[in-house]
């Protein structure tokens, strides 16, 4: 396990992962307040040129943060799936793992080391993006509620880790990066729609955490409301990893 952890962290620091993952989050973090601030002006200007007078309400830090979480769901999670789809499957396809697996190694350790190392880097990148978003919002709007934004991020983070774990587990079970990404997208879609099942069921859904993030930006949300979705998210992360490791451990590589 330690050998693989060392290797995974080295890989992060020596490959494109070092800057690509934080950069994606930072771009989302910086572009969201900018679009919230300037899009109404651009729209008004465009419509005025066409002879339509439209007065949109003055945007606030709230719109900037809402835009940030929208972008995270639309772009960030897709990027996570694409970046983690090859973590195991690509090493299998290239024959790297076949060479390694003839040595005394534990297959669960390979998957868990990837989850820990790449997951840690993902969390750090997420923090970089969130900080960028907060500071740029503060610069553009002169005010930004740190506590509301912090709560919103805390609710969102387990959901992000769930999508990462889903993609990694499928990668452990599959041999192709493309197939992994496709199945992970289907999984992501299925998890997303569970938040639309109606309040009775939706409040247990991991995707409900994204709803809670949005809610936390405008009013206070008690942690008790997040207990169930966090519990199901944590359970699903564990289930995904166990199933991925189980399939990988029985697979001929």
């Amino acid at each position: 396990m330690i050998a693989f952890l060392k290797k995974e962290f080295k890989e992060i620091f020596k490959t494109y992962r070092l800057w690509v993952i934080p950069l994606i989050f930072l771009l989302i973090g910086l572009s969201s307040p900018a679009s919230a601030k300037f899009l109404p002006d651009l729209l008004e200007g465009q419509l005025k040129a066409e002879g339509v007078v439209l007065k949109l309400p003055e945007p606030s830090d709230f719109e900037a943060f809402v835009q940030y979480f929208k972008n995270l769901t639309q772009l960030g999670l897709i990027a996570i799936i694409l970046l983690s789809a090859g973590l195991v499957s690509d090493e299998k396809a290239k024959g790297i793992l076949a060479q390694v697996l003839t040595k005394p190694v534990s297959r669960p350790a390979i998957v868990l080391a990837k989850w820990l190392a790449q997951g840690s880097w993902l969390i750090l990148s997420f923090i970089v993006g969130a900080l960028g978003c907060y500071l740029y919002t503060l610069a553009l709007f002169d005010k930004a509620s740190a506590s509301r934004f912090l709560y919103a991020n805390l609710f969102y983070l387990p959901y992000l880790l769930l999508i990462f774990s889903l993609s990694l587990a499928i990668s452990a079970a599959m041999r192709s990066q493309m197939a992994t990404a496709l199945i992970a997208f289907v999984g992501f879609f299925l998890i997303s729609i569970t938040a639309t099942l109606g309040q009775n069921y939706a409040r247990y859904s991991p995707a409900y955490l994204a709803n809670l993030s949005h809610k936390a930006l405008s009013k206070s949300v008690s942690f008790s409301e997040a207990t169930w979705p966090i519990a199901t998210t944590t359970s699903l992360i564990a289930i995904f990893l166990i199933v991925g490791i189980w399939v990988f451990s029985r697979q001929e590589v």
Binding site: K7, E11, G95, Q99
Partner: peptide
Amino acid sequence: PENPAFYGW
């Protein structure tokens, strides 16, 4: 193996 494969980095 016939085609040894490594971590290229």
